[in-house]
Amino acid sequence: MKIKKIDHFVITTKNLEKSIAFYKDLLGMKHVENKGRHAFIFGNQKINIHLKKGEFQPAALHVEYGSQDYCLIVKEEIELVKEEIEKKEYPIIEDIVKRHGSQGEIKSLYIRDPDGNLVELSNYCN
């Protein structure tokens, strides 16, 4: 077996409105709702949002708010992303640093979503 790509992952939120403000308004993802299920779409991927722990089964064994740590690749230069976040007065947890992504060296900055999940925003140093 060979894994091809990530399709989606799930975050459980305490506050849907704050999550919408973060993922849609700050990060620019598309919010969709279908029969009470919420998701944020970006590119060919999505983040499903559950409103309570273990809302849909099967679920992770130990669902916790704010326990995710993930990296999103941005289209723009990371310096421009930093400027945009600062203009929106959203707190940056760690300023731009070099890291290693799945395809090579990346420049990253870190923010937290309303539930405390660590969101690494990055682009490749090509």
Rank of each mutant, 00 (worst) to 15 (best):
N44K: 06
N44V: 00
N44C: 03
Q45C: 03
I47Y: 00
I47Q: 01
I47M: 04
N48M: 08
N48D: 06
H50N: 05
H50P: 01
L51E: 02
L51F: 08
L51Q: 04
K52I: 07
K53V: 06
K53G: 05
G54C: 03
G54S: 03
G54V: 05
E55S: 01
E55D: 06
F56L: 01
Q57S: 10
P58V: 00
P58H: 06
A59P: 09
A59M: 03
A59V: 03
A59F: 05
A60C: 02
L61V: 12
H62F: 00
H62T: 02
H62Y: 04
V63S: 00
V63A: 09
E64G: 03
E64L: 04
E64Y: 05
Y65K: 08
Y65N: 08
G66S: 05
S67A: 15
Q68K: 15
Q68W: 06
Q68C: 04
C71W: 07
C71K: 07
C71T: 15
L72C: 04
L72D: 11
L72I: 15
L72G: 07
L72N: 07
I73P: 08
V74H: 13
V74P: 08
V74Y: 09
K75G: 10
K75R: 14
E76G: 04
E76A: 09
E76I: 07
E76Y: 15
E76N: 15
E76C: 08
E77I: 04
E77R: 15
I78G: 11
V81Y: 00
V81I: 13
K82D: 03
K82H: 08
E86K: 13
K87R: 15
K87Y: 11
K87F: 02
K88D: 06
K88C: 01
E89P: 02
E89A: 04
E89C: 05
Y90M: 05
Y90R: 11
P91E: 10
P91Q: 12
I93N: 11
E94W: 13
E94K: 14
D95S: 12
I96S: 05
I96V: 14
V97M: 14
K98S: 09
K98H: 10
K98F: 09
R99M: 00
R99G: 02
R99Q: 05
H100R: 14
H100T: 12
G101R: 01
G101D: 02
G101H: 06
S102I: 01
S102N: 11
Q103G: 10
Q103A: 13
Q103Y: 12
Q103I: 12
G104T: 14
G104I: 12
E105S: 05
E105I: 13
